[in-house]
């Protein structure tokens, strides 16, 4: 009995040690979200090796990793500090697969460019939240775009969960952009449609009023880089959208759409 308890305790210790090697932020994500994987390789076969590369796989197949003895440069990680390496990616873009193909978990390890001789860490991994399938009240066309593209925010009022807001016939958009600033940090809900204007001005701003396309569909078309009041070195990384009435006393939930850089 003692042996069993000891074995369980040792296993738990190993799990804790293992868990401390890698952090993924955000910890909960879908295959279409941007994530940052940070790995501490201290005590592994690649401690002190530079540069290091990530090697990734999923239920639907491997990412384009290159070959085991010659990782592709697209998989190179960024050195955070001695023996700590990170990489920021969007799984669907990184794997070049759809969210459905990636499935519900990703796996990865960190290796030298030439992994011959087991120059690698142990396998690591993370669950991936399933993307809710089926029509959503909020979507954006096209599904992937840059800040320079023509983007149409589409709202299907029939699918609105707030029953009170379903009755609204004049719909406005409250929207802000998440940006990567010139200093490199990401600021959420950072840039509004016009500098200094916020929730109170939405109902009096014609360019924020959505166009009715019929059948409960409303749209607003914009070019992110021109629409939001950006600072000179800003890069837009996501759009934040709330649908509301003119008075601003009835609204939808918060919505977010990533912008490809």
């Amino acid at each position: 009995m003692k042996k069993i308890i000891l074995s369980v305790l040792m296993f738990l210790c190993v799990c804790v040690a293992y868990a401390q090697k890698v952090t993924i932020s955000p910890s909960s994500f879908t295959a279409k979200d941007q994530i940052t994987i940070e790995v501490d390789v201290t005590g592994t076969a690649v401690a002190g090796v530079e540069p290091l590369y990530i090697w990734m796989w999923s239920d639907g197949g491997d990412a384009p990793n290159g070959s085991w003895n010659n990782s592709l440069e697209s998989q190179v990680m960024t050195k955070v500090r001695t023996n700590v390496w990170s990489i920021t990616l969007v799984p669907t873009e990184f794997y070049k697969r759809s969210a459905a193909a990636i499935g519900e978990k990703i796996g990865f390890l960190v290796k030298a460019k030439d992994g011959t001789g087991d120059k690698k860490t142990e396998n690591m991994g993370s669950p991936v939240n399933k993307i809710v399938e089926g029509p959503q009240a909020f979507r954006v066309f096209p599904s992937n775009f840059t800040e320079n593209d023509i983007v149409t925010i589409v709202y299907d009022q029939k699918l609105e969960e707030n029953k009170d807001f379903q009755k609204t016939t004049e719909i406005f958009v409250y929207t802000k952009a998440d940006v990567r600033t010139g200093a490199g940090s990401v600021e959420e809900w950072a840039r509004s449609f016009e500098k200094g204007k916020d929730w109170g001005e939405v109902g009096d701003t014609p360019k924020l009023r959505m166009k009715s396309e019929g059948n409960g569909i409303y749209t607003l078309t914009l070019i992110p880089k021109m629409f939001y009041a950006l600072e000179p070195r800003d890069k837009i990384v996501a759009l934040r959208v709330i649908f509301r009435n003119k008075a601003g006393n009835s609204q939808s939930s918060n919505n977010k759409q990533n912008v490809t850089e």
């Binding site: 697209s74 873009e93 070049k96 096209p142 992937n144 775009f145 840059t146 320079n148 593209d149 023509i150 490809t260 850089e261």
Partner: peptide, 13 residues
């Protein structure tokens, strides 16, 4: 054809 910084085609005009 709009491409991402990584070279993926995102949008056609």
């Amino acid at each position: 054809r709009r491409m991402s910084a990584k070279g993926d085609v995102l949008v056609h005009y």
